[in-house]
Design a protein around this nucleic acid. Structure first.
Lengths: 188, 188
DNA sequence: CCCTCCATGTAAATTGTTACATGATTCA
DNA sequence: TGAATCATGTAACAATTTACATGGAGGG
């Protein structure tokens, strides 16, 4: 499990409430680890019980109270130990690929609009990443260690999106080829 | 949920037992959808109850009986309907990226061997994909619809591995740069 | 007045993982 | 004899998702 560790990293970069963490997981961290607020609240309580994080209750005017969490020493040690453990291989879940293979038993043309939709989403994400890179890392030579590591993770996201866009174009070309000369029963 | 659909696709490509499906999920399908045999047995029973698939009990000499499943008409219709539904975005889980960001609060050099291990695994996987491509798709001009779709999914896997290898080299270069001139407290 | 944001949670259902269990066959 | 493969499962647990619930603030 790594949700604990993802939360710890986020809290070490910047303390915050469960709600704020949930929003970070929608943005930057969500690029490589997703979590809903329900998961986050539950894990935060466990982490607090284990002494990994400390809480500070902050009363706000007009707003509900806020529990601001920050990484405690046992949490830092746990993170350090986890860093030295080997990671198990990522379990992949690529639904679109399943659909592409399923299209062989149906009309491949029915997938075109879906693939185009994905293509647009990935293009938009790439644009966001590139904008974020220009904003946060304008001068790559002047970055400290933390920023350099954040930057290399972002570059991974950028290259992933570029690769995916190129592949989706390949998929679209294949689907169009199949639609033009169907060697399948069904159409026409 | 798409495990049902991944199983359906596999059964339409070729009927088989739960055990055989589990092995396919270890190999080809596992590239974009993983599942253990326990999950597969559970889902197969549900799919059979729903009439999506048909079973044929096959007695074998020396071996336990085999339940060979094949896609039934309601299953085909369900697959066809699913194909036309939009897919929800993939939930990403990239533990190594979490570790890279965590390394900012620890010794970045401690990650080098782990990243190198990942690099080797991805290099080996790429080699397997390329070998599979040469074996299964030696003449791309002579493929039927099903093979063309399988091939484009495989190309996606190949490009993903190439991209990942290049990125891991980038990560290693970054880690080495940080180890040589550490702007972090801790080392020396 | 309705919607979104802030902020936290409970409950239920589904999915996924890990461990255990059985029993025959084949290969070294 | 011991390990791996074939073949199917149960049980317990952990993780994730989805739905529901509350309640004030601020904007249109």
């Amino acid at each position: 499990m790594a949700l604990e560790h993802a939360i710890l990293v986020s809290l070490m970069e910047q303390p915050g409430s469960g709600y704020e963490l949930a929003r970070r997981f929608d943005r930057s961290i969500g690029r490589f680890w997703t979590a809903t607020h329900q998961q986050i609240y539950r894990v935060l309580r466990r982490m607090e019980a284990d002494g990994w994080i400390a809480v500070e209750l902050i009363a706000q005017d007009g707003r509900p109270d806020k529990k601001v969490y920050s990484a405690a020493e046992p949490g830092r040690r746990a993170l350090s130990a986890w860093l030295r453990e080997p990671v198990e291989p990522e379990t992949v879940r690529h639904e679109l690929a399943v659909k592409i293979r399923a299209a062989a038993f149906d009309d491949p043309a029915a997938l075109v609009s879906e693939v185009e939709r994905h293509r647009e989403q990935h293009a938009a994400l790439l644009a966001r990443y590139l904008a974020g890179e220009r904003r946060d890392f304008p001068d790559p030579a002047a970055l400290d260690a933390r920023e350099q590591l954040q930057h290399v993770v972002l570059r991974g996201g950028i290259e992933y999106e570029r690769m995916t866009l190129a592949w989706l174009d390949d998929v679209l070309a294949t689907l169009h080829r199949l639609a033009n000369r169907p060697s399948n029963p069904g159409t026409s």
